[in-house]
Design a protein around this nucleic acid. Structure first.
Length: 480
RNA sequence: GGCGACGUGGCCAAGUGGUAAGGCGAAGGUCUGCAAAACCUUUAUUCCCGGGUUCGAAUCCCGGCGUCGCCUCCA
């Protein structure tokens, strides 16, 4: 099976490596290995992190829509300067510090309906693989040991920097040698293995006690689960240099093979036109948004409405737009539920086919979600028109529902029922029987032309979060 | 200073050579007792500014202006 065996459009991505749009050619036809840089588990994810994770979820779902079998791996960095710092300060073990953040991370993914990757390897569980990789690099002359630490020798890799295009000749040497970087031969060299410091977590290694550097973690774990050469590697744009350049240097110097075919990078999210930062007070976590009463479904919609290589300007006004757009989609479902199918054959089959076609074409074009959503909205209009004109044929409801479900297998935002489970809207107010009774009373008042009374009853319902709609078939209601 | 991305209607946002998708908002209309929802119509002769290439440019080139980001462990 190839990626276009089902007859859909060829899938293209913009590859950061080479800065070109390229056709996806899986190494193994029908299968795609994807490595996505995950979180360092020392704090709650902010919406910028989550934008990238939603992008990666979109990628995975879009590939699966096309019948590709995806293996997605995301690392959990549970040993680094920050986790160590926090462990020291609290007197806890590394695991005690990171475990709660791992849980928080998964909770955030769930709250945004991000599907789970197939593997979430933790750095601390893969130290032997990292040590083995470092040994390989030393054997091949790409790394050297100094005072218990091991460094990658950038001068040994003539391709170094091919991803970012950086020219390290221009980087001032000697100026920024951090205090823990001991005796590097060249200021540009980066650390693969760090000699242990007093009182810090460490592992046995051929170079004494120490811990792995950050970059080697991703190389070792991606190769462990996806092979020494695989299809797609993702991350935020800030990872291009140095993290991903370093990964490439390490991996390719160790194996002599191409590490990754396609590199995809998500642009950053900014807030009110500015970079998020704690000092500006515009750094939001999901908990922050929930406190403000934000609907997380709208957050996911907003994320999807902007192309992943475009900066996403997060504003509450934009969020309101997302809420309204979703309301329109939900309204169509509601109307469809109450619509009646006529005797004729299906009339929306063509519209459904157009949606499937345009939706696939949009995603195949470097995950153009804006265009994909436009296809959905175009479909919604057609369905609304058909309902309006009472032109639903036999089987149309099913056709519409299944076409939307097809799109939603990628978007994950169209089905309100899937998001209601949290159920914080229910509980307060009237139960269904009470609502029905009030609706009946109001209808009676209307029929006897006591409109003041009818409006009073409607206001009462609105107070309780009930929306009334009068239709030729009589009144109907729903909870807002 | 070096490197890069971006600048499309009130807001969000597609479109990268062939004559401006979509959503939100706004205005008018149909429907309604009034609403709500839906539908119809309108809302960028124009894509930051100035040149240039071309039969033709939002799309390519040059020069400005502006915004955002990266420059050794931040998605």
């Amino acid at each position: 099976m190839t990626e276009s065996s089902e007859g859909g459009p060829e899938i293209h991505f913009y590859n950061t490596l080479g800065r070109r749009r390229e056709r996806l050619r899986p190494r193994v036809p029908g299968r795609v290995g994807v490595y996505t840089c995950g979180p360092t588990v020392y704090a709650a994810s902010h919406i910028g992190n989550l934008r990238t994770f939603v992008f990666e979820d979109l990628l995975r779902r879009a590939l699966e829509l096309r019948g590709l079998e995806v293996t997605q791996v995301m690392n959990l960095t549970d040993v680094d300067d920050k986790t160590i710092r926090d462990a020291k300060e609290t007197g806890k073990s590394l695991a005690e510090v990171t475990d709660p953040w791992v849980d928080a991370f998964f909770r955030d993914l769930d709250r945004l309906h991000v599907q789970r990757a197939h593997e979430y390897p933790r750095a601390t569980d893969h130290v032997p693989e990292m040590i083995a990789l470092v040994e390989r690099l030393i054997e091949r002359g790409h790394a050297y040991e100094r005072e218990g630490s091991v460094f990658f020798r950038i001068a040994s890799d003539e391709d170094y920097g091919k991803l970012s295009g950086i020219d390290l000749e221009g980087v001032q040497q000697g100026e920024r040698v951090a205090s823990d970087e001991y005796g590097k031969d060249d200021a540009r060299d980066f650390v693969l293995w760090k000699a242990a410091k007093e009182g810090e977590p460490s592992w046995e290694s051929p170079w004494g006690e120490g811990r792995p550097g950050w970059h080697i973690e991703c190389s070792a774990m991606s190769m462990r689960y996806l092979g020494e050469s695989f299809d797609i590697h993702c991350g935020g744009v800030d990872n291009i240099f140095p993290h991903h350049d370093n990964e490439i240097a390490q991996s390719e110097s160790a194996t002599g093979e191409t590490f990754v075919a396609t590199w995809l990078h998500a642009e950053h999210l900014i807030v009110d036109g500015q970079k998020m930062s704690k000092s500006l007070g515009n750094l939001y976590t999901l908990d922050d948004l929930l406190e403000r009463g934000v609907d997380l479904r709208a957050v996911r919609y907003l994320f999807l409405s902007v192309h992943y290589r475009q900066k996403l300007n997060f504003t509450f006004e934009a969020l309101d737009g997302a809420v309204a757009a979703l309301r329109r989609l939900d309204e169509m479902r509601f109307r469809l539920d109450h619509a009646r199918e006529g005797e004729g054959g299906p009339r929306l089959a063509k519209a459904a086919a157009v949606l499937r076609r345009d939706f696939r074409a949009a995603l195949a074009d470097d995950l153009n979600t804006s265009a994909a959503l436009a296809a959905v909205h175009g479909f919604v209009r057609k369905v609304n028109v058909a309902i309006e004109k009472v032109e639903l044929g036999r089987g149309d409801k099913e056709a519409v529902t299944s076409a939307l479900a097809d799109a939603d297998s990628v978007l994950g935002v169209l089905d309100p029922a899937a998001w209601d489970a949290g159920g914080d809207t229910a509980g307060d107010g009237l139960d269904d029987d009470a609502v029905e009774e009030l609706v009946r009373q109001r209808q009676a008042a209307r029929e006897s032309r006591e409109f003041a009374e009818a409006d009073r009853l409607r206001d009462e319902l609105v107070e309780a979060g009930i929306v009334l709609e009068d239709t030729p078939q009589g009144p109907r209601w729903k909870r807002r």
